[in-house]
Structure formats: structure tokens, C-alpha cells
Amino acid sequence: MNPILSVEGVTAGYGRVTVLHDISLEAGRFGNVGLFGPNGHGKTTLLRAISGLLQPKSGRIRFDGQDIVGHSARAIVGAGLIHVPQGNRLFPDLSIADCMALGAYSPRARPHEAENREKVIKLFPKLAERWRQRVRTLSGGERQMVSIGTALMSHPRLLILDEPTLGLAPKIKDELCASVMDISRGGVPLIVVEQDIEFLLELTQQLYLVNHGAVATEIKPGESLDHGEIMSMYFGH
């Protein structure tokens, strides 16, 4: 099976600061992909480069075989690569209904709007109760549901989640993890950045440790790891 996404030798950063150094990875060959590693080592920058928010200085990013470097974020969304950014900073003064309509803005997603709305409501029944409420009035967990719901409205062919459980209470977090598993079972391949390794091990088939702007270790299916080994990867030996 060909990878749906491949990152080949990407170097990127902000201004004169280079964050990603010749990073390469693949997604979709074995199922879901997890990215982990210390904060500030380029995971979010990598996702911004993939979704077209940041232009890499060099390297190639292929989505479904096509090089998408230099494409606008809009074109990339239009192709079905959907990125849920970190920290659920959405549209604070829009209602949930508005966010869902925005999710279905691209021409590719629009014909599926009603069907995807059904899916989102089934996945997150809580959102239906607060459908006309402004996002700023929701709890952190609910806002994360809106973020993910908006992305599902975009009819994703590949869904990227950047720390979906960041800052959530344990109970809400468990609920959200279960919902993410549901999305995966629904057939949408995922790339997930997460600090919770247990969750990543359960959800994904392939893991990358991103350190100093490059892939430090790749863990392929079948190569299981214990908690201690991961800790030593984080902190050195």
C-alpha cells in the first residue's frame, strides 16, 4: 500500500530560525501514525508545513502522490488533507452550527454536508444540545469536539490532530480518545501528535519520535515498546 502522505527531506522554519532539519516520514502505509517527542522540537511546525500554513525552505511533501509544496492551504483542504490545530483556538464568536457550515465550505465537502453533520452529531451528541451556542461559551473538551467536528465536516481523506487532549480533565480526555478511535474505525486515516504515549500506542500502528527537528526513531508495526524505553528516548540515556 502506498503512503497517502510522504514528507521527503523537508527543511522549514520561521525567518532565519530553522526548526525542521531535513525531516522525512510517511503516513498511511500501515494505518494511523503517531508523532511524539519533547515540546519545541518541530512537531507543530511540521504539521503547519504539511497543511500549507508555512512554506518549507526545501523538500517535498506528497499527498496522494502529488507534490503539495507551494499549494495554498485552501487547495490542500480542497484535496482532503485536514489539519486540526493545537489548542482549539477556533472561532470564539461563531456558533457550533456556523463552525460546521464553515467546515463544509470547500466544494469537495459541500455535497456531503448533511451526511457529515449526522456523523458529527452521532460522534459528539453533546454538540447537538449546544448547537446555537457560541464557541467561547463552551468548555475546553467541547471546544475540542467542535474543532474535530469542523474537520470531519471537511470530508477528510487524511486527518491530522495536533495534541487533541491537551489540557483536558482525565474523564473528558478518555471520552475524546474513544471518539478519536471511533473516527479511525470509520475509515479515516489519522496522524496524531500526542504526549500521551499509551493513547498513541493504542490508536496508531506506526510511531515517530521527533527530536531536534528530525525523526530520531521510527517504530514500525510489530516493534512494541515499553514505557521505560520511550522515557529513555525522551530524556536520553
Partner: peptide
């Protein structure tokens, strides 16, 4: 309200 998020829904 949010430029980045607007890019990410394809506006």
C-alpha cells in the same frame, strides 16, 4: 476571528 483556522477550513 481567526486567520489560521480560516485557512484550515479552506477559506
Amino acid at each position: 476571528q481567526n486567520e489560521d483556522a480560516s485557512h484550515l477550513v479552506g477559506l
